[in-house]
Amino acid sequence: MKTIKLSLVAAALCSVMATPALANTVQIYGRAHLSVDSLDNGVDSGTNVSSNSSRLGFRAKHELDGGLEAFMQIEQNIRFDEGSGNWASRDSFVGLKGGFGTVRIGQFDTPLKNVRGKVDMFGDRVGDIRNLTRTSTAGATNANIGNVFDERYRNGVAYTSPKFGDFVFDFHYTPHNNTGATVDNIQESYSMSVAYEVKGFYAAVAYETFEGANGLDPNAVRVGLYYDLTSDLRVSGMYQTASDVPGGDRNVYGLGTSYKMGDYTLRGQYYVAGKNDVAESGANMFVFGVDRNFGRALTLYAAYAVTSNDDNANFRVTAGGRDTQLNTVTGQDAKALSLGVVYNF
């Protein structure tokens, strides 16, 4: 019996080795991003360790006849700080690519979220722009305000066009952004963008809307861009206007910059959340930092961020891509000093 099993294993290995080298490709990848942070909620402060969008992923693709390619990805969040994780909690999908473009089905970022990711100088760090685009005022949480853009929608069906010149169109439809089956398609959502990108320049406009609570249909228009003034100096900016959300319409806008000096990169950004229908409900966020780069694999960084809140606002400085977040006391300023390490594999 043992001889038979060994023979079957050998036959299977020979079969795999006989497959054309380019027909199947499987990749294991990931990121370990951790930071040690001094966090201040406006009244008290403490020292914390945070795992920030750390991940483990698996990708596979298979070349088909007619120039088609089938592909899949499974990606999960890994809590290096607390020793836990959620399987397939990040972008996980199956898709088909060809001359017609790319189609994906699964759970993944929306086109609106991707625009922010391209221009955010502090993505997944303290001072991430999502501190202003995903939260509200007076103690409200994302669960009850219906003002959550920058999300990863469930049950998504998406199409990405081939390049038309340097333009690309993205469309994402979610019939039901929840778990289980539905008969009424509550929480239906749409997200789309048009982007223009060449070396050293990126500009995009995106629109997103979804069915929210209390008869509201929150929607947002977002414009983002970056431009490399030199090979070392980049400037970026983003503007978002959100409508039909609890508390009233709100605009978020700002600028960022980065400058490379050999193995070091200096970066900073300043963003403003305008007030909504509630008086004294706006905020200003400023963050600056420095990276020490050791190639693509390793980056060490330091960053300091402050979110200055109006009397009725409680925007954070630790939201967006961070697993350890600290709520801000309403009307107080949130502060964070962060020392981080990012290891890509």
Rank of each mutant, 00 (worst) to 15 (best):
K2T: 04
T3R: 13
S7W: 01
L8P: 02
A10I: 00
A10D: 11
A11S: 10
V16G: 00
A18E: 10
L22E: 14
A23R: 13
Q27W: 00
R31T: 08
R31Q: 13
A32V: 15
H33I: 02
L34P: 00
V36W: 06
D40Q: 05
N41Y: 03
G42R: 09
D44E: 09
S45Q: 07
S53N: 01
L56A: 06
R59M: 03
R59L: 07
D65A: 06
L68A: 03
E69Y: 02
A70F: 11
F71M: 12
F71P: 02
M72C: 12
M72T: 12
N77K: 04
F80D: 13
E82R: 15
N86Y: 05
A88N: 08
R90E: 10
V94M: 07
L96V: 12
G98W: 06
G101N: 08
I105H: 02
T110L: 10
T110Q: 09
L112A: 14
K113S: 06
V115L: 10
V115D: 10
R116C: 02
G127V: 10
T133Y: 13
T133A: 09
R134A: 15
R134F: 00
T135S: 13
T135H: 07
T135M: 09
S136M: 04
N142K: 14
A143P: 06
G146V: 04
N147F: 12
V148M: 09
R152C: 05
Y153D: 13
R154D: 06
S161C: 08
P162M: 03
D170I: 03
F171T: 05
H172P: 04
Y173N: 01
N177Q: 09
T179F: 00
T179E: 04
G180R: 02
A181C: 03
A181G: 09
N185S: 12
N185G: 06
S189R: 14
S193H: 06
K199T: 11
Y202H: 12
A206Q: 02
E208W: 04
F210R: 15
A213C: 00
N214P: 04
D217Q: 10
N219P: 05
V223M: 14
L229Q: 08
T230Q: 12
S231M: 12
V235R: 13
S236Q: 13
S236N: 14
Y239Q: 00
A242S: 15
P246T: 14
P246N: 11
G247M: 11
D249L: 02
N251S: 14
N251H: 05
V252N: 13
Y253C: 01
G254Y: 08
G254R: 03
G256P: 10
T257C: 09
G262N: 05
T265D: 09
Y270N: 05
Y270G: 08
A273H: 01
N284T: 04
V287P: 02
V290E: 12
N293K: 11
F294G: 14
R296V: 05
S308C: 00
N309I: 08
D310E: 15
N314P: 00
F315Y: 14
F315S: 06
G321E: 01
N327M: 08
T328Y: 07
G331R: 00
A336S: 15
Y343L: 13
F345H: 08
